[in-house]
Amino acid sequence: MSALTSLFASLVGRLAELVQPLFHTSATAAAIVLFTALVRLAVHPLSRAAARGQKERARLAPQMAELRGKYGKNPERLQRAVLELHAKEKVSPLAGCLPGLLQLPAFFLMYHLFSSSRIGGEANELLGHSLLGAELGGRWADALGEGGVFGPAGTVYLALFGVVAVVATFTYLRTRRQLAAAGPDRPEQALPGMGAMTKLLPLMSFATLITVAVVPLAAALYVVTSTTWSAVERVFLYRDAPAAGALATAG
């Protein structure tokens, strides 16, 4: 882990040097945003594949509605029939999960890098870098202790909370509209319990507010950038498939 963290620190440092002429003292923060964008670009082909998979699931809505009518009183048999249908049509019910899972290592590396005082036996110089007065290794509690909610560091967090709130609200409202447009035969209703879960999952976007508050600012920047990217990406990938887009947003 130490060697990987050192390599990651070197990458962030090189990116910071690249953007330093434009962002000056905020170059490391800009490098984190740039790194996040590069990660999202790397997994974008998987996101496109996931979108195709979700559209295929939406295409199967009539067949799944038929199965629901046939086996609605036998949840176990219904679930087995749905899985058999997915296998027959070569559609993965977990198509939308892989892009998110592949981003977790990058997030944990960012978290570990800006939570460690030493890297490879040497002092972690990145912890001294900041964004408009907010230390990249600090947390919201630190910002509140240093200058309060409206202090220099606190204002940075207010801006991040604002971005997350706007993105989460946009995602939630868009998902509700898509589910309404899909009607009663949307594909997730074929699996017992999935209807209630699909209504709940869009609200999880607001949980990002908690994440931003408790992780180091560098990791918070990663989360906010990635979340915003996801919202914009889904608008384009699912623009012609309301039901599929709703399921992907929920997942």
Rank of each mutant, 00 (worst) to 15 (best):
G147T: 05
A220L: 10
V215R: 07
T227E: 09
Y172I: 12
A3N: 08
Q178D: 13
K55D: 01
R174Q: 14
E56A: 15
K199P: 00
P105F: 15
A248R: 04
K55C: 01
E76N: 15
R59N: 06
D240Q: 06
V167Y: 07
A29S: 14
A244W: 02
A50G: 15
K90E: 03
A181G: 08
R48V: 11
V39A: 14
Y238I: 00
L102K: 15
S230G: 12
A220Y: 13
A134E: 03
S2E: 14
Y71H: 15
L38T: 07
A181R: 13
W140N: 00
F108D: 01
K70T: 02
A37H: 10
L67V: 01
E84I: 01
L46N: 06
K55L: 01
L94C: 07
F161G: 13
S2M: 11
L131W: 13
Y222K: 08
R118Y: 03
L200K: 13
Q63S: 07
L67Q: 03
R40C: 05
L67K: 07
A37T: 06
G148P: 02
V82E: 02
A220N: 11
E76L: 15
A218N: 08
A27H: 07
F161W: 12
R239S: 15
G53R: 07
F107C: 09
S226E: 08
F206M: 01
L160S: 07
A250I: 00
Q20I: 02
A95E: 01
R59F: 00
L7W: 10
L221F: 07
R57W: 04
F108K: 12
E84S: 13
S92K: 03
V214T: 10
R57G: 08
R139F: 04
R14C: 05
T198Q: 13
L113G: 08
S115R: 15
M1V: 08
G137Q: 05
N124M: 09
K199E: 03
G147W: 11
R57V: 02
V163D: 08
S226R: 13
L102E: 06
S230W: 09
Y111I: 00
V163T: 12
S26W: 04
A27L: 06
